[in-house]
């Protein structure tokens, strides 16, 4: 990888100042960015590590019952926290492998918005709020296509606030080599509605399957999904799985999520 300047600020304000320099890139857990830099697909002139900022780590329960997870909190810490709801625990404990989960962070995953990453599905399904240094962004507005988010240059995710669904499930069909989702479905059931988010499948990245949400609202059972059709158009097709196969998996994984949450 090409060389760069390295800064490791201890506070958010120092990090924001460091990120103002030209071509500065924030480094979270590095489990995507470091391999990307090795391949020279990214070559920032300055790296600002966010891993030594205590204010960005940790999990707490808010007065309204929601949960806030610091942007720098690792997948392992989310998986092992008793405040986290079941679907999110399953999700965090099945990202990558044990070593990756000790470094990778929720903020890094959401900011990268890999079309096959797990966390975007949880954030979108649960209707999370992404809290940055500048503003609060609803998950519905945050994800803007493959590797694209609403974040501006130099803007970082300080925390993510999750409303807690009374039922939740994450079902992931693992791509066995990368351990990313071939297709992953996150289902959240709230008093005021059901939200279904699909990752790994669309060329536009994570999205809500609103037809399934409507069908499940009337009849929360696997059979409610039987008549729904998913067109392969716009679905990712590659050497691992064709468009048709992934389209098929969306319904299968959603049914599994319904069964698991029931």
């Amino acid at each position: 990888m090409y060389n760069f300047e390295f800064k490791q600020p201890k506070t958010i304000s120092e990090a924001l100042t460091a990120l103002k320099s030209d071509e500065a890139q924030a480094l979270a857990g590095g489990q995507t960015l470091i391999p990307t830099m090795k391949q020279r697909l990214a070559s920032p002139s300055s790296i600002v590590s966010l891993s030594e900022i205590p204010e960005m780590k940790g999990i707490c329960k808010n007065d309204d019952g929601s949960i806030s997870i610091g942007g720098g909190t690792t997948h392992a810490d989310v998986a092992n926290n008793s405040n986290i709801f079941p679907g999110l625990v399953t999700l965090a404990e099945n990202i990558g492998d044990a070593a990756v989960r000790n470094r990778g962070t929720i903020g890094g995953s959401l900011a990268n918005n890999d079309p096959a990453a797990c966390y975007p599905a949880a954030a979108l399904s649960a209707g999370a709020t992404i809290v940055t240094n500048a503003r609060e962004i609803s998950a519905d507005d945050f994800f803007q296509g493959m590797f694209e988010t609403a974040l501006d240059e130099g803007e970082i995710i300080l925390s993510v606030r999750f409303p807690v669904p009374f039922l939740s499930s994450y079902q992931k069909f693992i791509q066995p080599a990368s351990r990313f989702a071939m297709v992953g479905v996150f289902l959240s059931n709230f008093d005021n509605g059901i939200r279904v988010a699909v990752t790994g499948a669309s060329e536009e990245g994570v999205y809500r399957w609103v037809e399934a949400e409507g069908a499940l609202k009337d009849n929360f059972s696997e059979s409610a999904l039987n008549d729904l059709l998913i067109e392969p158009k716009g679905i990712i097709g590659d050497i691992h799985a064709s468009k048709e196969y992934r389209a098929h998996l969306i319904k299968v994984m959603t049914k599994r999520a319904v069964k698991s949450a029931s």
Binding site: S49, R103, A177
Partner: peptide, 28 residues
């Protein structure tokens, strides 16, 4: 050297990590 094989697994501050996917300066 692509974060997949785990032959470089070590412990940093008691946690299992892949030493090929962490900068030396991050372990300062």
């Amino acid at each position: 050297d692509t974060s997949q094989c785990g032959a470089c697994a070590i412990h940093v501050d008691g946690k299992l990590v892949k030493a090929c996917t962490m900068l030396a300066l991050e372990a300062n």
